[in-house]
């Protein structure tokens, strides 16, 4: 973790001047007055997590640890439960009919499934980007970017809001493309731009955890590359968990890779290790294209 010490005020002033650069410095520090210890602590951890659709178990006693500030990729064949696992972390899984979750998910040391947990607060602290771009058609581009801030009731002055919009659009590489039409319809953007807008929307409230559910599955290679670069740049500030079908993508963007099969975690290791010397035979079979 770098850039953890600047005081919020200084960072905020800096944000006025060079939003794109300053924002990176702001995000971990302004969250709370977290000490180095808190930030180096485990950011996300699932423990004996079971997730079910009706009677079918999609995830079975999965225990995974996600290192803070790192990018963890979850790979595995279709239906292995990787998306479901991801959606358990921000408690999105349970919004589906007949979906149930057992076990625990610790985000920043707190079990998000503990009784009395404010689900909405949990979701606000975690960014989420789905497979298909989901800009809100009823809002313009600017409103989309700040939707998360608005709904959280974060009151900021007009100029600061504008700064935030610019900063987060700069980061997602959209600023140059949309700065002259922030008031226009997001549906007029290309698919790749829409997805980057969704990423901007997820990043605007400065989450500490970012969940990406096959974020490039519906995009062309050029847009995919831009998203991957972004994920790479976010390293150090956000704990990123990316579910992907694409093994090359996992190899490119992640520090750590987890391999899942039939709802169970097979192994989790630094990406280089997992791809070159997997310890489980099934991982090797999958990586070499023998199944899945």
């Amino acid at each position: 973790m770098t850039d953890v010490t600047p005081r919020a005020l200084d960072a905020r002033l800096a944000a006025r001047l060079t939003p794109a650069v300053a924002m990176r410095a702001v995000s971990p520090a302004t969250r709370d007055d977290a000490s180095d210890a808190a930030i180096s602590a485990v950011a996300v951890r699932t423990e004996q997590l079971d997730a079910m659709y009706g009677g079918v178990a999609a995830v079975r006693s999965a225990t995974l640890t996600f290192t803070p500030g790192r990018v963890t990729a979850i790979i595995g064949p279709s239906g292995c439960g990787k998306s479901t696992l991801l959606r358990c972390i921000n408690r999105l899984h349970e919004t589906q009919p007949a979906a149930r979750v057992r076990g625990a998910v610790f985000v920043d040391g707190r079990d998000v499934y503990a009784a009395g947990t404010d689900v909405v607060a949990v979701r606000r602290s975690i960014g989420f980007v789905a497979q298909r771009p989901t800009p809100f058609p009823s809002m313009n581009i600017r409103e989309n970017v700040v939707a998360g801030l608005r709904v959280a009731g974060i009151r900021v002055s007009g100029t600061e809001l504008e700064d935030r919009v610019e900063a987060v659009l700069q980061r997602t590489g959209l600023w140059d493309e949309v700065s002259d039409r922030l008031d226009s319809d997001p549906m007029s953007l290309s698919g790749g731009q829409q997805q980057r807008l969704c990423l901007a929307r997820a990043l605007a409230p400065e989450p500490r955890v970012l969940l990406l559910d096959e974020p490039t599955a519906a995009l062309d290679p050029g847009s995919t590359q831009r998203i991957e670069e972004l994920v790479y740049l976010l390293r150090g500030e956000v704990t990123t968990i990316i579910v992907t079908h694409n093994m090359q993508q996992a190899a490119r963007v992640s520090d750590i890779t987890a391999f899942m099969l039939e709802g169970e975690l097979i192994e989790q290791a630094p990406t280089r290790v997992l791809f070159t010397a997997p310890s489980d035979a099934r991982t090797e079979l999958y990586l070499t294209g023998r199944f899945g």
């Binding site: 999105l92 975690i126 960014g127 989420f128 497979q131 298909r132 709904v151 959280a152 969940l211």
Partner: peptide, 23 residues
């Protein structure tokens, strides 16, 4: 309206009724 849109709203911290009305 696609389910994904509602989920995006929920994931962003919209309460259920707010995502229903506003999104």
């Amino acid at each position: 309206v696609p389910v994904a849109l509602r989920e995006a709203a929920l994931a962003l911290g919209f309460t259920r009724w707010r995502s229903s009305l506003q999104i």
